[in-house]
């Protein structure tokens, strides 16, 4: 594969990471704790979509190789993830009287409960959506890019969701309230913002985006009960790289981490790829360490620039 091919793959994977990291960052800044159940919220979205798609089928036509029924399933996946997250907030997190560390530990318990329920219902094995796998797009193959129309659909849908979120945050009342609350919850409260309601909306948006990310992850790879938890640390890396609490930072961080993750194979043959570097030079790191690289970057960012590349207050 050529560099362009890896970049294209990186773009697809980045879209998924971005969807996950926005939600995590929103919840981190507004509910004020590191939500370890975020990855499993993605899994919930993916499996809800799997069930829905199995029930409704294709529904006639198709866009970008994906039947209409899949888009319905995507919406159901988003909705179920959001409903589950709001229910968890109402039933579990809200009545708790503990600090953010206690909430963090609780969210690990929640993550296990989500995953266990899915595993009891669907088993631990890998599954796939019942969508026909596609061949890579013909006219891109000469450039060394092997992406399917499904991948294009993933990137396009993610772009639509991200732009929608941008509009919501910048131009609507709710968005302004959310930004105010992320900035200073007490001040937001005394200025008459109903912070509890805003918090619920944050969960809806964050978990909804996570659900969408989960569905796309299932389409990009496979579905398994561990898919979300396995991705969780990569998403944390993205959020920390972008700066916790900054939605745009999370987008940038997600993009970078997703790219780095997919570009790992290039590290071992840097010489061929980069100019000025002698041929045959490379960092001998295999693809199996792609996630490890993300974690090391995360720790390095925490040390050098704890506020992330975007800095704080850029919500």
């Amino acid at each position: 594969m050529t560099v362009l091919g890896y970049l294209a793959n990186g773009l697809v994977f980045s879209s998924i990471i971005v969807l996950g990291s926005i939600g995590l960052s929103l919840v981190y800044s507004i509910a004020d704790f590191a939500n370890f159940a975020h990855g499993d919220t993605m899994t919930i979205g993916a499996y809800s979509a799997l069930v829905t798609f199995g029930a409704v089928g294709g529904l006639g036509g198709a866009v970008l190789g994906l039947p209409y029924g899949f888009f319905l399933a995507l919406i159901v996946g988003i909705a179920v993830a959001a409903v589950v997250a709001v229910g968890t907030e109402k039933l579990i997190y809200e009545p708790l009287d503990i600090d953010s560390i206690g909430l963090l530990i609780t969210s690990i318990g929640i993550a296990f409960i989500y995953r266990a329920v899915i595993q009891i219902r669907f088993g631990a094995d890998f599954t796939r959506f019942g969508v026909e796998p596609l061949r890579p797009i013909e006219w891109l193959i000469p450039y060394g890019i092997r992406v399917t129309r499904h991948d294009v659909a993933i990137v396009a849908s993610a772009a639509v969701l991200v732009v929608g979120l941008h509009v919501l945050l910048q131009y609507t009342d709710l968005g302004r309230k959310m930004r105010a609350m992320a900035d200073n919850p007490d001040l937001a409260r005394v200025s008459g913002i109903r912070t509890k309601r805003v918090k619920l909306w944050t969960w809806v948006i964050g978990a909804g985006l996570a659900g969408a990310g989960g569905v796309f992850l299932g389409l990009f790879n496979q579905l398994s009960p561990r898919m979300g938890f396995n991705l969780l640390l990569v998403i944390f890396a993205a959020v920390i790289l972008g700066g916790i609490g900054s939605v745009y930072g999370a987008m940038a961080g997600g993009f970078l981490i997703g790219m780095i993750n997919q570009l790992t194979p290039l590290l071992s043959r840097l010489g061929e790829v980069l100019p000025l570097v002698p041929d045959g030079f490379g960092i001998p790191i295999g693809i199996e360490y792609a996630n490890a690289i993300a974690f090391v970057i995360m720790v390095a960012v925490l040390l050098v620039r704890p506020n992330g590349i975007a800095g704080e207050g850029a919500t």
């Binding site: 579990i92 609780t106 318990g109 929640i110 296990f112 409960i113 266990a116 329920v117």
Partner: peptide, 9 residues
Amino acid sequence: LLLIGILIV
């Protein structure tokens, strides 16, 4: 996993 999760919560 379920028992551990419930226990934590």
